[in-house]
């Protein structure tokens, strides 16, 4: 049970003057149930990469296995794949269109050919999972706040019962509380359902707080792939490619440079506080 990419290459506008290689020889395996962060500067190939995962963008060469089957094989059921690998795009609330929230969330399962009763059941479950209050089910999605709209949009994907949830910058434009609420909810989903979650984000602090593994993309190539501690240890290299580490990483490194006896691999506030206190407890 995994997603496995082998030597994926993707070239835009092949054979024209605008030809550009967006993915270069990318390989990885993501096991069912992992919570993976994908980071990279704008144009690094991360959005292109995740659009490969449900077959939306087909690779120019290479293989992509979902549960052991190469999705590029002839006769592969792409429709089923898209039900299994749910993709939430950037600003997904721009894709809301139905008259009320519940009907909007029913759209996915309806297209999967489920009965109206089953659709509604799935929609209600999905809305509950994202913590959307029932009293607004019959409201127009356009009257909701930014954070609530985004929950509805995520519920629309969850209603298809995916095994893998891919989120492309789900918190862009939300206020700090809205950011925490959405990501806490995603973390809850991940814990409760054994769903694989792949999170694309520009916020290093969010990535550090939630994921267990980070894939770093740079100019179409996989640059690092490891635990947050391993990846953020390369903060200088990350900066060179337009990224950064969480603020606490910089603080710990500065303290170590000043001669304090400190390990610099903490990436969350609690960990950093623990590490700093060790210097003062004795």
């Amino acid at each position: 049970m995994s997603i496995k990419a082998e030597h994926l290459n993707y070239i835009y506008s092949l054979g024209t003057a605008y030809e550009k290689q967006a993915l270069k020889d990318v390989s990885f395996e993501i096991l069912q149930g992992q919570f993976v962060g994908v980071i990279g500067h704008t144009g690094s190939g991360k959005s292109t990469l995740i659009q490969h995962l449900n077959g939306l963008v087909p690779a120019t060469s290479g293989k992509l296995y979902y549960e052991g089957k190469n999705i590029y094989d002839e006769g592969y059921d792409m429709r089923a794949l898209r039900g299994q690998v749910g993709l939430v795009f950037q600003y997904p609330e721009h894709q809301l269109f139905e008259v009320d929230v519940l009907t909007d969330v029913c759209f996915g399962p309806k297209n999967q050919g489920l009965s109206p009763e089953e659709c509604e059941k799935r929609a209600r479950e999905a809305l509950e999972l994202v913590g959307f209050p029932e009293k607004y089910y019959k409201q127009s999605p356009f009257d909701l706040s930014g954070g609530q709209k985004r929950r509805v949009a995520i519920a629309g994907v969850l209603a298809m019962n995916p095994k893998v949830l891919v989120l492309d910058e789900p918190t862009a434009g939300l206020d700090p509380r809205g950011r925490d609420e959405i990501l806490d909810q995603v973390a809850y989903l991940h814990r409760e359902t054994d769903m694989t979650v792949i999170l694309v984000s520009h916020s290093m602090e969010d990535i550090a707080k939630y994921v267990e593994r980070i894939i770093v993309m740079n100019q179409g190539e996989k640059m690092y792939d490891g635990s947050p501690k391993e990846v953020f240890a390369h903060y200088k290299e990350l900066e060179a490619v337009g990224l950064a580490a969480p603020q606490v990483t910089y603080i710990l490194n500065a303290l170590a440079e000043k001669g304090m006896n400190i390990k610099t691999d903490a990436i969350t506030i609690t960990e950093a506080a623990d590490e700093i206190m060790r210097n003062f407890d004795d």
Binding site: D175, P176, R177, G178, E205, P246, Q247, V248, Y250, I251, A254, I269, T270, A272, A273, I276, M277, F280
Partner: peptide, 29 residues
């Protein structure tokens, strides 16, 4: 529904754990 910079939060946390750190820290330095 707002927040403070991560460094301010860390300073706050250290203060809660008993370190004598001045109020209103905004920068890493």
């Amino acid at each position: 529904r707002l927040d403070v910079p991560q460094v301010t939060m860390l300073a706050d946390e250290l203060k809660k754990r008993g370190l004598d750190i001045p109020n209103g820290i905004l920068r890493t330095e």
